[in-house]
Design a protein around this nucleic acid. Structure first.
Lengths: 344, 344
DNA sequence: TAACAAAGTGGAATCGGTTACACTCGAACC
DNA sequence: GGTTCGAGTGTAACCGATTCCACTTTGTTA
């Protein structure tokens, strides 16, 4: 109905000056008599007064807020990450503004502009595109930039928190090689992302180390969002010599890929071993329970918030933190059946 | 390094007054000569200037922003909702500030306070607790409040967008009754939420309409978050006369309930028919594919954004919008096997 | 008793934008 | 040739908080 109360209204109602009200508001910023404090609190109550952040932010720096810019909340991995970041930030009294880019570079640029003009103290992000200029600019604005999960080489000032994707891919590949697989399908995210590239690199390096000729036909780089997981899986299965094992190194596309597998009636693990780079509640529900790579979301979140709130010791270079992923072997991987092992 | 540029710096660099810069900033707010505009734009570029929202918000009302207060981003249903809301809002040029309550009333209250002092134009929320006072207060601040999915009776001024939960529960129950089930387990969210209550009501009403004595032992109301789905499922299975069908009317707990089912080695649907109130990619992956109730997330989001941005015609009462849910029958429901149908 | 410290208070400047209003200037009109 | 108009510009007030500083009122100490 009426206009919201301001600090002046409260001061008037309590019969004091605005300075006193402000001191009550920011406890410890100056002396206030018990009587005055009481009357001010009462007045605030009566007028249901809420200080406007806009005014506060204008005068003092931004109230401690960090931006969280995720590629896709729909992706359970990112959703869990968001959950952890919010919890972590809260425990330090920091607000989180969450924004989604939906893997769209234009959206990302917009969100970045918003974050910049909001002068948040830090931004935690899973960068989609090389909006290098925008990122750099954010850094210039003395906003801490932390890339989590993926990162951009072109933005050296940003901190990075991630699992060792190359090593994880190596571990997954080793596991399959030890079981006796030689033709391994590898579905990953776009090579334009560090996750896609590192995982692919790790996979190829491991094959090479075991003297296996990598077939580029067995590698599929698909977008994180969308339904291409099914197609990728389909085309791999239709080959004359289909792979005996497959690594789904793309968090978001695992579901659509697995659906295709189910439709095709392929038996897991007897006909095909499956490893998924993801750790969702349902991976255990799938029959058979899936062998997965688990990312320590809590830890990623904790480190990210840490870095986002810390002052940069050196303005030009970011810090890099690697955390360990956990490889969980369940029932979806097994030795290839004899019939399918080729003569070599 | 140096302090970020202000409008005055830009004005000085371009050799004009701040008023001119402001006019360039807010195109259409006044005349600016082509030359001046050019110089201002150049200066903004050079100084990499970004207007501070805090200052803008202080003078004019809040820039068009809506708050989205979700109970749990980890819950895929809410994640999809968030995704849709962001997309929808974006298409109208509105920013979304997403916050999570994690089903914690205290967190919710905090988030509400933040939203209030941020003076967003509207808030879309899935209320957790009866923070009735805080909600009411938000409404007093001429902030539109829209409850989506769940709502609170105690906050009449809020708009509501939801599926018809009672009707949906009725539909699910009818389906099972038609198949011949008589003992139906019903796992829902807390009765303190409207979703939990409506779904339970619909279920019980349907039983009554068919002359079936409802057994309170077959109803389990558990929190949305956490792992109690497994326990609820377990205790139902351990009964002397276990249900022949079960409805998991709790989006978030379906996974943990199903996991228990899998562990117990119960065959679906021959030993137990299952209906889930949720529509996740993995419900199709589960073997057998699950019969589900699908909520039209896009529609819920579109209406919510609509209402959040609209001016309230009447300040005292909110509007209610029901959208239709779609019941998808797949393979997890079937007639109970004869052996299990009791004598009645 | 004078001097001084500390507690309590209020006035006024400040943050960085927006905007009402006054002003200049040249073109158009009668 | 004076009036009117509108385009283009600048000055200054304002939004609602924080905060520095000066001031008064006490209590304490030499």
């Amino acid at each position: 109905m009426t206009k919201p109360a301001t600090i002046r209204d409260v001061a008037a109602a309590a019969g004091v000056s605005i300075a006193v009200v402000s001191r009550v508001l920011n406890d410890g910023s100056g002396p206030v008599s018990a009587g005055a404090r009481q009357r001010v609190l009462q007045a605030m109550q009566d007028l249901s007064y809420r200080p406007r952040v806009a005014a506060r932010e204008l005068k003092s720096g931004p109230t401690s807020t960090i931006g969280l810019l995720l590629a896709d909340v729909t992706n359970p991995f990112f959703a869990r990450l968001a959950d952890s970041v919010v919890r972590e930030a809260r425990s330090r009294g920091v607000q989180v503004v969450l924004m989604t880019t939906q893997e769209d570079p234009r959206l990302e640029e917009e969100a970045l502009a918003t974050l910049a003009s909001r002068r948040v103290s830090g931004v935690i992000a899973t960068p989609t595109a090389t909006n290098a200029g925008a990122w750099q600019h954010l850094g210039d604005l003395q906003t801490r930039v932390v890339f989590v999960d993926r990162y951009l080489d072109s933005v050296p000032l940003a901190d990075v928190v991630s699992i060792d994707n190359e090593r994880s891919a190596r571990e997954a590949t080793e596991h399959l090689l030890e079981l006796g697989h030689r033709r391994i399908g590898f579905v990953s995210g776009p090579l334009s992302t560090t996750t896609g590239r590192s995982r692919t690199d790790g996979h190829l390096a491991t094959l090479a180390a075991h003297g296996i000729e990598p077939e580029s036909e067995l590698l599929r780089n698909i977008p994180f969002r969308g339904d291409q997981g099914a197609d990728a899986m389909g085309s791999l299965l239709e080959r004359d010599d289909p792979p005996t094992a497959i690594i789904l190194a793309n968090t978001a596309q695992a579901v659509s890929g697995l659906r295709r597998l189910r439709q095709a009636g392929v038996k897991v693990p007897s006909e095909l071993s499956v490893v998924v780079f993801d750790d969702n509640p349902w991976t255990e529900l799938f029959a058979p329970a899936l062998t997965i790579m688990r990312q320590p979301t809590e830890l990623l979140a904790a480190h990210s918030v840490d870095l986002a709130l810390s002052q940069q010791p050196d303005a030009t270079a970011g810090r890099t933190l690697m955390v360990e992923a956990e490889f969980v072997v369940r029932s979806s991987t097994a030795a290839p059946t004899a019939a399918r092992v080729p003569s070599n």
